[in-house]
Design a protein around this nucleic acid. Structure first.
Length: 548
RNA sequence: UGGGCUAUGGCCAAGUGGUUAAGGCAUCGGACUUUGACUCCGACAUCGGUGGUUCGAAUCCACCUAGCCCAGCCA
């Protein structure tokens, strides 16, 4: 796979390079540090990064921290970790707050040019003067203040002479514009709050529409990518770059953000789930936050492949999570070591195998990746197999597993035949007594009989006990997206099982293994010395349709 | 007639006047298989609608329809 779609932004960049408009592209990812990044953000991060790198340019990480009341260093650290994890290396780590002085000076330039004025209207009044979608706005009575007066008051704003919300600085554009963003947008507001970077140095903070184009221009960003809802802001973006006389002229280009169907990404919603204990934190493996995906064991490269396959459209769709999982499988299929694990065990006793004897078989970690080496797999009288792999009576000709009187191959070991079943008081299968045929040892070339399928197993006396967390989608499959989240929750989104894995395997943190025939599993951070804990990353696909 | 944007198979998405309308996911067949996985073959759309321009249109024009965004001193 790993098919990368063409996209219109790449075309624009290549044209700009060909026409010598730019020598190389400079992009940026400009998050506001006010929450956690999720899979949707991965499109913006990876596309900005790769589009720049592919064309010999570079990529900046810039925190758009212009609103201290919503932001926190906690989030900047988390975001840095997530972005680095995705493999995106920023050339410069920057903060909008680094430019507060220059922004102030540029705003003053606007004042000097008669293009900005201090407005004393209250928030409520400004709203009323703005008109609505179909009605033009009215000019503020303060719109024609003298340049001298504006300069003085704006200085006063900076110096803390006014209360929060008492005055704002506005750009003088057009109160009758059909584009609401051009109706004399506010560019500075007074807000006494301690900023995570600049502390109490400022009591006025620039608004996004003013700050963002300046940030881009200051850094020499060539292509400023953002999502569709900012299309209406492009005229004002260009207006500020021009009238603030910025030497570099970045170009804003909008694309459709990545939305994954049937997932929870809203900060409010996730916070609520966390507070109510429905999920275990922002990094719960059922969430598609980047930290959740990381904890679950999703390889970052799989995210990159997925994002590249999706492309960068100008339209706005909703992608099914299954497509993402397929890219995870695609990657892990090649990269994950294989190991036998039994998640819902039943005991098998090989009655013709000596007690207290265990033999060792050398088995490759991946049959197509010799470099992965081999591991010792043990075989003995006492084994575990998957409960689903045994049914007393073979149900139909398609059944390729163990049944009474039926012979299957234990992968990498021997053929066994089931002879007898022992039940517990409730009538559940407790043990299956089998016999093995020493002639059928794997690798011996035995081909006199064909087994009724191949199943995996774990030798009981050497096995490591593991806790396995099986995840399903947090929300029910076709849940009505207009319904309340509480009603859409999938009650079996997390199921904990206790099973066994091969004794000789030592899992590395964050490494995803394939548990043969079951799926991919990675060690969770809850793992303790005496208890391995695995998360199921994704199941294997199966064309087996006789599920109960 | 506020403004801006989008519309290609169940989902994602290429395509910018001449292609049998890429590719991926899903689905359905089949081959292979010591993972019912992987891999491999094969099947699977006339491009929101209607008119028009053209020798020729998903690609140009007109009208229509549907959806999304904009009235924070949020980003």
């Amino acid at each position: 796979m790993i098919m990368e779609n063409r996209n219109f932004i790449r075309t624009i960049i290549e044209e700009d390079l060909r026409s010598k408009k730019h020598a190389f592209p400079i992009t940026r990812f400009p998050p506001e540090p006010n929450g956690f990044l999720h899979l949707g953000h991965a499109r913006a991060i990876l596309m900005n990064y790769h589009l720049a790198m592919e064309h010999g340019g570079y990529f900046n990480l810039r925190f758009d921290d212009t609103n201290p009341v919503k932001e926190d260093v906690l989030f900047v650290e988390a975001m840095k970790e997530d972005i680095a994890w995705l493999g995106c290396k920023w050339k410069n780590l920057l903060y909008a707050s680094d430019y507060f002085e220059e922004m102030y000076q540029r705003a003053m330039l606007l004042v000097e040019k008669g293009l900005a004025y201090v407005c004393d209207l209250s928030a409520e009044e400004i709203k009323n003067y703005r008109g609505d979608l179909k009605t033009p706005g009215q000019n503020s009575p303060y719109r024609e203040r003298s340049i001298e007066e504006n300069r003085k008051i704006f200085e006063g704003m900076r110096n803390g002479e006014f209360a929060d919300g008492e005055r704002v600085l506005r750009a003088k554009i057009d109160m009758a514009s059909p584009n609401m963003n051009l109706r004399d947008p506010i560019i500075y507001r007074i807000q006494r709050a301690t900023h995570h970077n600049t502390k109490d140095q400022w009591c006025i903070y620039p608004m996004y529409d003013f700050a963002h184009p300046l940030e881009d221009a200051i850094e020499g960003i060539t292509h400023s990518l953002c999502s569709l809802e900012f299309e209406d802001h492009r005229p004002i973006y260009d207006w500020f770059v021009k009238h603030c006389e910025m030497p570099n002229v970045p170009r804003q280009i909008e694309f459709g953000k990545l939305i994954i169907a049937n997932q929870i990404t809203g900060k409010r919603h996730i916070r609520k789930l966390v507070e109510e204990g429905i999920v275990e934190g922002w990094d719960d493996p059922r969430l598609i936050t980047l930290s959740g995906l990381r904890r679950r064991g999703i390889p970052p490269k799989a995210i990159e492949n997925f994002i590249k396959a999706l492309g960068l459209p100008k339209s706005q769709g909703e992608t099914e999570i299954e497509m993402f999982y397929e890219y995870v499988r695609d990657y892990l299929s090649v990269e994950a070591r294989r190991v036998h694990g039994v998640i819902d065990p039943i005991k098998v006793v090989i009655t013709n195998y000596p007690e207290n004897q265990v033999e060792t078989l050398e088995v490759p970690y991946h049959k197509d990746r010799e470099a992965f080496g081999t591991r010792p797999v043990y075989f003995g009288r006492h084994l575990y197999i998957e409960r689903d792999d045994f049914i007393e009576e073979k149900p139909n000709k398609k059944w390729k597993r163990l049944s009474l009187g039926i012979e299957v191959r234990l992968m990498h070991a021997y053929f066994i035949k089931a002879n007898h079943v022992i039940y517990d008081e409730q009538g559940n299968v407790l043990e299956v007594h089998c016999t093995y045929d020493p002639e059928t040892k794997s690798g011996s070339g035995f081909d006199a009989r064909k087994p009724n399928g191949n199943i995996h197993f774990v030798e009981a006396t050497t096995a490591k006990s593991v806790e396995v967390r099986l995840y399903e989608n947090l929300l029910k499959q076709d849940s009505d997206s207009s319904a309340a989240i509480e009603e859409r929750l999938n009650p079996s989104s997390k199921v904990v099982k206790h099973g066994f894995i091969e004794g000789a395997v030592s899992p590395e943190p964050a490494e995803a293994f394939q548990f043969t025939r079951l799926g991919y599993f990675a060690l969770d951070k809850d793992t303790k010395d005496d208890q391995l804990v695995f998360n199921r990353v994704v199941e294997l696909k199966s064309s087996y349709k006789l599920k109960k």
